[in-house]
Amino acid sequence: MTLKLGRHSFADDATLMMAIVNRTPDSFYDQGATWAEDAAFARVAAVVEQGAEIVDIGGIKAAPGQEISAAEEKERVVDLVARVRSSYPSLVISVDTWRAEVGAAVCAAGADLLNDAWGGADPELVDVAAEHGAAIICTHTGGVTPRTRPFRIEYDDVVAAAIDDTVRYAERALAAGVARESIVIDPAHDFGKNTFHSLEVTRRLGEMVDTGWPVLVSLSNKDFVGETLDLPVGERLVGTLAATAVCALAGARIYRVHEVVETRQVVDMVWTIAGRRPPQRAIRGLA
């Protein structure tokens, strides 16, 4: 399906790199490296240079921590969104938030996409997306409260649960007035899931793709990779890319990543193996 992300449209065979930009002092991977607005802006410039089509700006780390009010969250992200909008008109700006109030403010500042990593915790977020012509990402969290870690969550079938919840969320967004081509689903690895759940979702990602909704995967350096390989944050790139390859073969369209260049290479390679993309330049044996 053709993707329409706010102001931007993409062909139905395009894959997209969504680069993570943390306007946070405490996110797990970068530990505040881009906390200052200038540092976050420099990160945007860097990932654009690396070829990212989307930046995903977040003002609150996913894990439990100090409570951040909506006012504080807006203070962290709205000005940055506006600055990125004016500097990079052709870049898709996503904001990682579950709050409708924050969503409205960032859309007014130029955001194209609301990345609701917490699975619709705030029911009004879809209305905000509809009102602003923004796209929305519908994630599966198993119904957990935002910013909590999974604890002894069990599913009869984690993939069926992920499909049920995200498709229901997608249909709710559609009913609220979000354009069909502006709705993306995300199984949300590690959110409301233990490592076995995340591995199963990866293994069976094709079932999510078969729903017809475009699928986003967020795998980058996550704990399911770390636990699978017994590696700390900082040593999970190879494992992340292996999971990325599996998801690409299944047909995931958007990849939320820390490492743009490496992920782009893996996705292009797999997409080409799958026959969905020609080689960049093939002449060997054909001259």
Partner: peptide
């Protein structure tokens, strides 16, 4: 030249 054939086309 086989590279002229559509089945062997590249992006570039």
């Amino acid at each position: 030249v086989p590279a002229l054939l559509p089945s062997y086309s590249s992006i570039e």
